[in-house]
Design a protein around this nucleic acid. Structure first.
Lengths: 228, 228
DNA sequence: TAGATTGTTAATCGATTAACAATC
DNA sequence: TAGATTGTTAATCGATTAACAATC
């Protein structure tokens, strides 16, 4: 008897036993966004076909993507919007709360602190840290700006999971390594560098200037096509 | 041998006759960044092999990517760093200047205005527009905040190419359509929506909350793997 | 039941990697 | 010339799309 062939149906296994491609992960927040809008408009059910037309993707891709995580739909019916919305939230880890710090009270640091949207999704900024003494004691939306010398203790004492790293390039690498030592689990990096950290710390980088360069490329390309 | 003067056969330009895949375009700013660092360190030449080790990609991919745009290297030598850096700048459209406005003087709008890095790359913020009268006349880094009622005229009179759109979601779509009408060529969109605009206007969206959700996914996935 | 639509396998397409002849 | 490394073609791998049997 071939044992290998007797192991058939999935689902008994946890979601993360196989590696999901990053292309799929990158699309999840977008699904989540569209489902949230549908929910706001009191839409109860939707088929992959309808959703595909709204999102300008193929229905096939939607079904393939979702089936990486489980069978959330029903034949002949489609998907229950609220249920699917909540399932994707769980997949994305939005069913839990994250305590965050912001490291660097510059332009971007302050902008992130000022935002209320992230908090709605479970990402709560607890404190901002900087090296500039004139900022100490100031608050943004009630969030205190503190001396970066206190950062290590603060992370350890308050179970901080995520650090938004908004320091200049030349300070970012050293700080990132410290954050790892101090037990941070995820770094939301705004510095224009590629952080290489141990695999038990996750990095997500927002490359603003890369983004602007892509826009520039596309504008230039379009203009060249025009006058050729 | 002077590589700079060794002009290749095919390179005689018309970069945009074939469609370059967006995977390639997305990597260009990263190449540009690494080459800039090499240049700062006075590195004169580099082979695809060496660069691939620094960047943690394959040498093959680097050569394939670059050859979409022309033969910038030389057999037996590699690539001249400065030359390649400048060529990529041209491809990305960084050899020209863009005049920009920021629409929305909120957190992100002000943060972008405060940045000096973009200006170095040729993206100059000329003015910020908002609906809130208490802000009118204020400046950020010398950049005036003006009444959004003046935006149409300002764009038309000052040949503005790019608008950074930092309005809340519900105002962003209407404004985007207006920007198109007023002749904007590129929109750098920070609102969490998918703008669908005519093909003569390019959109580049920065989805901050999508980015944070990806971080959250990766943290959660890592923690699950650990305790299975 | 009949119709609709999923979950999933198979086919296609595109992107990445490997290999190597060309050539500096 | 001999060695190195590109530019480019061919092979592989992965992701997307198509098709359809299962089933609600």
């Amino acid at each position: 008897m071939d044992i290998k062939n007797t192991v058939t149906k999935k689902g008994a296994f946890s979601v993360s036993d196989k590696d999901i491609s990053s292309a799929v992960i990158n699309r999840l927040p977008r699904y989540y966004r569209y489902l949230g809008d549908l929910l706001d408009n009191d839409v109860v059910r939707i088929s992959s076909k309808e959703l595909s037309e709204k999102m300008h993707v193929t229905a096939s891709q939607i079904r393939q993507d979702l089936n990486n995580f489980g069978g959330f739909g029903q034949q002949g019916y489609g998907y229950n919007v609220e249920y699917l919305y909540n399932e994707i939230a769980k997949i994305l880890g939005l069913d839990r709360k994250y305590d965050m710090v912001i490291v660097g009270a510059g332009n971007i640091g302050q902008a992130i602190a000022g935002y209320t949207d992230f908090e709605k999704r479970g990402f709560k900024v607890k404190r901002i840290f900087d090296i500039n003494p004139t900022l100490f004691g100031q608050t943004i939306r009630g969030i205190l700006i503190d001396d970066v010398a206190n950062l290590e203790d603060y992370i350890k004492d308050n179970n901080i999971t995520i650090a938004a790293l908004t320091l200049p390039k030349n300070q970012a690498v050293t700080m990132a390594n410290n954050l790892v030592k101090w037990g941070i689990k995820g770094i939301w990096n705004f510095a224009p560098i590629d952080l290489r950290l141990p695999s038990n710390v996750k990095v997500e980088t927002v490359h603003l200037s890369d983004s602007l360069m892509r826009l520039s490329y596309n504008i230039r390309e379009m203009e060249e096509d025009k006058d050729v």
